[in-house]
Amino acid sequence: MFDDALHPTPATAGRPAKWRPATEESRLTRILLIAAALGGLAILVVAPLAVVFAEALARGAAQAVTSLTRPEATSAIRLTLIVAAISVPVNAVFGIAAAWTITKFDFRGKAFLITLIDLPFSISPVVAGLALVLLFGTNSLIGGWLVASGFPIIFALPGIVLASIFVTFPFVARELIPVMIEQGRAEEEAALTLGASGWRAFLTVTLPNIKWALLYGVLLCNARAMGEFGAVAVVSGKIRGQTATMPITIEMLYNEYLSVAAFSLAAVLAALGLLTLALKTLLEWRHADQLAAGRRH
């Protein structure tokens, strides 16, 4: 509708028949591009999801539900939720602190710090897991002492949490840094000149300004924390009913040809991810006016 108002059709504008707005592709190109995008989405995203749910329900909903109530499944779900509940807030705080440091202060080694934040993205999660085992495993100095004092890290919850925190560290900071750079320091400085303490300026000015980026980062971080496989597989020792998270349990069940159980759990994991996405969409939709106001400024 916009296009019609802004770009009158060639006939009414009395222009040569070939005239077309510079940013507009031909009709055929447009149709092909849209078809390619939708087709790609269908094959790569929708189909796999549909298959997961179909397989879970292959022998009826009752079987699927029963498989989910077995202790193996419930403990996996509980563990995954606990890990996400710890690592997401920790990374939200770390991410805000890192983004704040990088965008609000000038100091030496800033470029290095930015690279460091990206590190978890560029090295394989398995390598990260192995590094944690070397650091905290029974054979290491710290690990030996920790095990002796009854606080093991590897093959236990702390190791899984550490691995998840490491792998998901960049999400929040990565979302926040560009937003905070774009916004600059002026509003915080204004708050300070008006008598606000640094902490008050952060709570009343910085946080509201970054809340959408923060929410987005937190949701991505959460989705990844719940789905992390590689690093957790190394540090958890895959002890059934104890240190096996949902992704790991799914893999074990699948390898044992328990396809209904495996796919039911996979469906729950996928549903948790979809729930996160729905939450984000809902929030964006309810606060659309604020979002627009924030952007236009």
Partner: peptide, 25 residues
């Protein structure tokens, strides 16, 4: 009382809240 070059108004607050900010702080 500092007036910034680009004004630095708090974008998520109404004009009222902007002006009241210093009193509330």
């Amino acid at each position: 009382g500092f007036v910034f070059q680009s004004y630095a108004l708090f974008r998520h607050m109404t004009v009222f809240e902007n002006i009241a900010y210093g009193l509330r702080a």
